[in-house]
Amino acid sequence: MKSLLAWLGLARSGVNSRKTVTFGDASAVTGSRFWSIVAVVALAVLWQQSSEREWVNPLFWPTPAAVWNQFVRIASEGYRNFTLWEHVGWSLYRILMGFGFGCVVGIPLGLAMGLSNTIRGLFDPLVEFFRPIPPLAFIPLVIIWSGIGERSKILLLFLAAVWIMTLAARSGVASIRLSKVHAAYTLGASRWQVLRYIILPNALPEIFTGMRVAMGVCWGTVVAAELVAAESGVGFMIMVASTFLSTDIVVMGVIIIGIIGYSIDILMRKLEARLIPWKGKG
């Protein structure tokens, strides 16, 4: 009983149960599972009830049943020449390509910017200028350059990821404690060895944080890009459905976008814990 209450977050456990001051103590505020469950259930009930009692026009907000039925139908029959999984797969493919190129260019560039005055000087204006521009602002240009095919979307996602990765790698280099570098040199390491065995692993936690951010931004950007111009993808599915006023499909798409975005972040966090166990322990 006690452990159930603790699991639900209704009773404090361990040292937290003896603390007299918890307001402002971050380690004592971890979120109560009970209230998370309440929130989700309440939303579900509200949605169900509102559609059953027809509080809102289903054209504006579909019933849960309609969304579910669309999900089942599209999952088995597909939508606009592609199955549901193909739509999702296309979106993910674009992200992985754009994000991948962003990493391949951004990480070495950021490392170089952190290591060389010349390269830092050369690229700082460029990076600082492009960084605050939302990638979507490039959509018209990108379409003019490479049409509405895959190339334009991958290019757009590359632009979304590359600056984030550059800055992450640059600050990863800057975060090194000088005594580690000095230790490596006095132990006989060459410059290349210092880069390979000291600078790079030290920068990995920040590079990984950058990857998580970039993944999030890419996911948001791909959906938006598909809304504008595409023949497949989750965003495309929503866009077409909206022209037919099929709000049930739109809402289903939105839910899928949310679930996938959330899953990507959880996956990245798991990977991070696995690959970089030393994070925050220097």
């Binding site: 580690k180 230790a183 132990l187 065995y197 692993p201």
Partner: peptide, 30 residues
């Protein structure tokens, strides 16, 4: 800097991405 003049720093100069043994063997490995 040269490996004939070794240094011991205040805490925080170990390489936390390497095990204890990898830290100690760093010089010979390089």
């Amino acid at each position: 800097p040269s490996p004939e003049r070794g240094m011991v720093f205040q805490q925080g100069a170990l390489f936390e991405w390497m095990s204890v043994a990898e830290n100690i063997g760093f010089g010979p490995r390089m």
